[in-house]
């Protein structure tokens, strides 16, 4: 069965979505990610959607759900690489991805997660 790979980088999980996902694949990712967060005690999740040319309300909801679930499991989520055309369309669609932290690219997203973790460890 096709799956979106989830990579572990230290205390963080990295997901790069490179295919146009059908709905079931998106649901599967949601489940796999929450399982992995618990299994590896991840403190952060970085989702790179720079290859995604379309984010409709279903995918948008999945992203919001992942962020909410991760928060409940004590992990922060940062979504990176939203294409400008996708950002424009998302807002016009009426989706603002509230509660989801975003960064321009993977480097900045990773820095965000590291700062957060360092601040908590004081």
């Amino acid at each position: 069965m096709e799956k979106i790979p989830i990579l572990k980088m230290g205390r963080f999980l990295l997901v790069t979505i490179q295919v146009d996902m059908h709905d079931q694949l998106a649901m599967q990712l949601q489940e796999d990610l929450t399982d992995r967060i618990v299994a590896v005690r991840a403190r952060g999740v970085l989702i790179d959607i720079s290859s995604l040319e379309v984010v409709d309300s279903f995918i948008g909801r999945m992203i919001s759900n992942i962020a909410a679930m991760a928060r409940v499991l004590d992990a922060e989520t940062v979504v990176v690489g939203i294409q400008p055309a996708v950002a424009i369309t998302l807002v016009e669609l009426g989706l603002s991805l509230e509660g989801v932290r975003t960064a321009l690219n993977v480097d900045r997203g990773m820095a965000m997660l590291q700062q957060q973790l360092a601040a908590e460890q004081g």
Binding site: D23, E53, D56, Q83, A85
Partner: peptide, 29 residues
Amino acid sequence: KATRESAVVQGFSLVEQTKIVTAASEIAR
């Protein structure tokens, strides 16, 4: 995919393509 290809053939800008593809996705669902 078909909507994207049609929009490209018609010379839509990237933003225009993305808008019609996203709208098509919502209605198809």
